[in-house]
């Protein structure tokens, strides 16, 4: 990573923020903090998308994730009365097996990334415009797009059916 390039400085800052925020997400004893730190992580990913020339995806992540999904989570937190504030029952007692697996996964993924794509540059490639994404979705990816729309519809109906109070009880 060449720190002589301004973009890399941006990347470094955003990356560190994301890792720190995500660590808070998985360790925080306060559920509200965890949810808000997820916002920070996702915001960081949106910033990375901008850095990679994917403005549209960045916008979608901000709108859908930060705007809608997080709100959903907050509702979930409140409805299920997760203990807000410090409490010991949020986590399992022994974190070390989970940590070991997480570290091993990181080692494998990062190791293979460096090993196989160690010196690959992503600069110098023309950014994809939003209109190209639109054309691509409704041309080449129209079938998966329609499938995803059905998935969303099914999820919508499914969550209503699941969350609705059973009239008998």
């Amino acid at each position: 990573m060449d720190l002589g390039v301004a973009q890399n400085w941006f990347f470094l800052v955003i990356g560190l923020v994301m890792v720190a925020a995500s660590l808070v997400v998985v360790t925080s004893r306060n559920v509200m903090h965890a949810a808000l730190m997820l916002v920070a992580t996702l915001g960081g990913s949106a910033a990375l998308f901008v850095l990679l020339g994917a403005e549209f995806v960045a916008g979608v992540v901000v709108l859908v994730y930060i705007g809608a999904v997080i709100v959903l989570f907050l509702f979930g937190v409140m409805i299920t009365r997760v203990e807000i504030g410090r409490g010991s029952s949020l986590d399992h007692a022994n974190p070390w097996p989970a940590a070991a697996i997480a570290i091993a996964t990181f080692a494998v993924l990062a190791g293979s990334a460096v090993a196989f794509f160690g010196d690959a540059e992503v600069d110098g490639v023309a950014a994809v415009r939003t209109s190209d994404i639109g054309t691509s979705i409704f041309d080449r990816f129209v079938v998966p797009f329609e499938v995803v729309s059905f998935v969303l519809l099914a999820a919508l109906i499914g969550s209503i059916v699941l969350a609705r109070k059973d009239p008998e009880s």
Binding site: M1, V5, Q7, N8, F11, G15, M18, V19, L48, L51, L52, L109, A110, A113, V114, F117, G118, D119, A120, E121, V122, D123
Partner: peptide
């Protein structure tokens, strides 16, 4: 920017 830095962060 290298590809690897994004992959490692990911």
């Amino acid at each position: 920017m290298t590809l690897a830095q994004f992959l490692v962060l990911s």
